[in-house]
Design a protein around this nucleic acid. Structure first.
Lengths: 340, 340
DNA sequence: ACGGCAAGCCAAAGCGCTTTGGCTTAGTGT
DNA sequence: ACACTAAGCCAAAGCGCTTTGGCTTGCCGT
């Protein structure tokens, strides 16, 4: 069933039927009803390709997905995707993933824009002065950044969590418990979220007259293995930390393994706070010592990104609005007062 | 730059240019070269919407993605996606994700087909007599199933790993080590992979004159928490198992936690073998007791699915070919002879 | 020298929608 | 009674491709 056939059975022009269906004003209410009715009854659905060709709008949102041997899409992505899907599902929005290598990112963005494949994209894991953001900004494609960049001389739409405050507060809590030697096992600092976290922790320590020396910081891809290695090297050093801040639950698994291997206990010997993105399949409250966490649902962020993307597509949102979510600090058994 | 402009500067018709670019035979080699050359120089790229409208081909592969509060897309998905992306990237194939609820799955498939949004789809996590497969088969959309269904009266293209053999071999190994009471902590048996695994384990036990009683099997969503619960209830029962087969590394985390909480050791008190889908962020060799695993890269499967999907799209592959990959059994420290 | 044929090219007709620019008709003010 | 307007509808022109159905050439055999 296409427009032509439908308009034929209604003895109306394609123009009128199209307008009726798309809510244009120059159609009488009665006609509109008749049309809507017939469309539903016959299960008419506008052909998206045709519509796309005519309007230039795609009805899809895009994500340029870095792939390749060296790039591991991590489980955060899928959780974010779930949230995005939750929203998109209710709004007949589809998601286009365009795989790319790190080198070809710019080319891929340009292709996607040139092809008008999508109406908007989202950008994840931003880096400082992220070139993707600069590019999208000048290409004029609506976009939202999940996270924040730094050092850009223009504003852009984003939603982020308050990583700095989260790690500041977490560090402050450890300080209040009397810890002096606090270590940070962070994600890769080429990503801004990791930079913010380090900054937050450092600020809290500075406020207590303490510092976060470089040898008490590790910045690595967030795998279990790296968590283990980082904790191991920290705890075997001299003046080992009495408390550890960790950027991910998966890393925390490795951290805990290291602590245990060394015959130490949590929180007796080492207090531990980790960031929890809220995975349904790995919960900090279920760790053998329930983990104190800074918590923020990455799935909720995905949902919000989709919502705002939809708003931008329909021009309900136009300003380069930044949204920063507070992060919960959830206290569980993995922290205790420092023994000194 | 569009076809019209390009053909104009070449003083050729749109027809010829189109044919030259698409490799039709009725163009002289010289013309073809000229055209290809000019196209490259001016960065001409056919508008996909227009092409789609004209041909009905989409140049995309689809995935109908179940989402919703009760459905957790799990980390396996993203790993699979990585693989798919690895292939797609090199072939300018994009992936369309259409989020749906479990109830609307059929509707969504129909919509995707009716809209000609994609040239092919893949189906994951098949169930016995999976209705999606039936539907796709009758709709005539090319598809590949990642995994297998059962009880369907027609053949269909799929790629799967040999779950039955994997768990058969793993169980047999435990038997050879003298274990008599072997338990299975499985994924949800509404999925065929879990059924096959159970079948494999059971077959191995039967071959030794043993059985796998229902109270020594757990079938649950593969989360850390469920792994913990399952192991806990198994080990606290009377006649606790001396060996456990576990369907996922994430569950194994919970299993190990339970074992440890009970003051037991691996492999002293309990031998453990888990299935490893090969996540870059969680490796069995790095567990505090390195884990014996049945191993098969889900990422590789994604890559292969994309490859075959592409072949089906271009009609290089047409038969309903089934492909079943063998699974490695990788022995590490987590198994030992039974104490009895 | 002429019909036949293949090679190489082209004009134009779609694909199914949106949108521009009119065209009626009925209603309004004077 | 007339010009003018607004409401409601329509025909046709795109959007940028592919593909059908020719139309020229030049070459062959006879």
């Amino acid at each position: 069933m296409n427009l032509k056939q439908l308009s034929h059975m209604l003895s109306l022009s394609q123009t009128t039927v199209s307008r009726a269906l798309n809510g244009y004003p120059e159609v009488s209410e009665e006609t509109r009803r008749r049309v809507a009715d017939a469309a539903k009854r016959h299960g008419y659905r506008p052909n998206p390709s045709a519509r796309r060709l005519a309007t230039g709008k795609a009805g899809m949102i895009g994500y340029v997905m870095p792939t390749g041997a060296s790039v591991d899409i991590d489980p955060h992505f899928v959780e974010f995707l779930s949230g995005l899907g939750d929203y998109a599902r209710g709004h007949e929005l589809d998601l286009v993933l365009s795989p790319t290598t790190a080198d070809d990112e710019e080319t891929t963005y340009r292709r996607v824009v040139a092809n008008k494949q999508v109406d908007a994209v989202y950008v994840s894991s931003p880096r400082p002065a992220d070139r993707r953001i600069v590019l999208l900004n000048q290409l004029g494609l609506p976009f939202i950044v999940h996270g924040r960049s730094e050092g850009l001389d223009f504003d852009y739409a984003h939603i982020d969590i308050d990583n700095e405050a989260a790690f500041h507060d977490a560090a402050r809590l450890l300080l209040q418990l009397g810890h002096k030697r606090i270590a940070l096992i962070n994600g890769d600092t080429s990503q801004t979220f990791a930079i913010f976290r380090e900054r937050g922790a450092r600020r809290a320590l500075a406020a207590s007259g303490l510092s976060l020396p470089p040898d008490r910081v590790r910045s690595l891809a967030m795998t279990e293995e790296n968590g283990f290695r980082a904790a191991n090297s920290l705890l075997r050093g001299n003046e080992p930390p009495t408390a550890i801040l960790c950027s991910s639950l998966i890393m925390a698994l490795g951290v805990i393994r290291a602590i245990r291997d060394l015959g130490l206990t949590i929180p007796g010997d080492v207090s531990l706070i980790a960031h929890d993105d809220v995975f349904p399949w790995l919960k900090p409250e279920n760790f053998s010592v329930p983990l104190t966490t800074t918590r923020s649902s990455i799935r909720a962020a995905g949902e919000r990104v989709a919502e705002r993307l939809a708003a931008r597509i329909s021009r309900l949102e136009t300003e380069p609005l930044g949204e920063v979510w507070p992060v919960d600090l959830v206290v569980r058994a993995s922290i205790a007062t420092a023994k000194n």
